[in-house]
Nucleic acid binder design. Structure first.
Lengths: 137, 137
DNA sequence: CAGAATCCTTGGAGATACTG
DNA sequence: CAGTATCTCCAAGGATTCTG
């Protein structure tokens, strides 16, 4: 299936196949409700577990742990344990994560530019079609 | 890229508060398993329902419909019905969606650059810690 | 052709309690 | 302090069937 082509990297695969996976790969690392919030917080500098728990409003201890583990596994966060008592664990963003955050800038700007248009589109849509309880967010 | 502060828009809010929401807003519009694949396909030009069904491998009719509706509601996809028989419906990406796709380029490139590093990090992580069936993807 | 309706499964996430 | 361990819930998604 080759309708047109969108080649941004000089990759031989067709546009219908390549970027999907690649973009999805990227998105999968920052998917979930909390990854971005955590990533953003540690990008300021190292942060401890409890610091993050307070810095990311609404996160549960469990999800903080799980998300940190996944980010660590992907190499986006580095975990450093100090063998003190009481224990002290610091999390920091890796260079890769800092780069990632930079790459999100374009997305952030896009959202900023179109926030109103999107809100308007939704209102219009919900007005035409009824809003049958499918209108979350 | 300087840690400490990440100000890309001149927004007064602190980095810990503002971009989270904005980025999440953007991500929420393209979340879900299928939005990107659909968006990418219609970005080549208008596509019909059944075309998309075949173009996006693995998608169910139900999820295609649902995702299309959500994208339409957000103003990322335009739906055009031709009153013919049999019916014909065309979907095309709006300008906003095309812009969005452009903004994803940075992300795509990031994923390309770090694909190996991430895979390596995962292997290493799974080797040190056991891989307790939590190692999907 | 382009869907709508229905039923069912799954895993992401919340709440709570316990621990090295 | 920095986690684990369970239990539970819900919405995303899959499978199947029906229709203008």
């Amino acid at each position: 299936m080759s309708l047109g082509n969108i080649d941004v990297t000089g990759d031989p695969r067709t546009a219908a196949e390549r970027p999907v996976c690649t973009v999805l790969e990227a998105l999968n690392r920052i998917s979930g409700k909390w990854a971005i919030g955590i990533l953003l917080n540690v990008s300021h500098g190292p942060a401890r577990f409890t610091e993050l728990e307070r810095a990311v409003p609404g996160i549960s201890r469990r999800m903080l742990t799980l998300t940190l583990r996944n980010l660590e596994r992907d190499g986006l966060i580095a975990r450093r344990v100090y063998a003190t008592v009481p224990p002290k664990v610091e999390y920091r963003a890796t260079d890769m994560a800092v780069e990632l955050y930079g790459s999100l800038t374009a997305l952030t700007q896009w959202a900023d530019r179109h926030r109103e248009a999107i809100a308007g589109s939704r209102e219009a849509y919900d007005r035409e079609h009824g809003l049958p309880a499918g209108a979350v967010d």
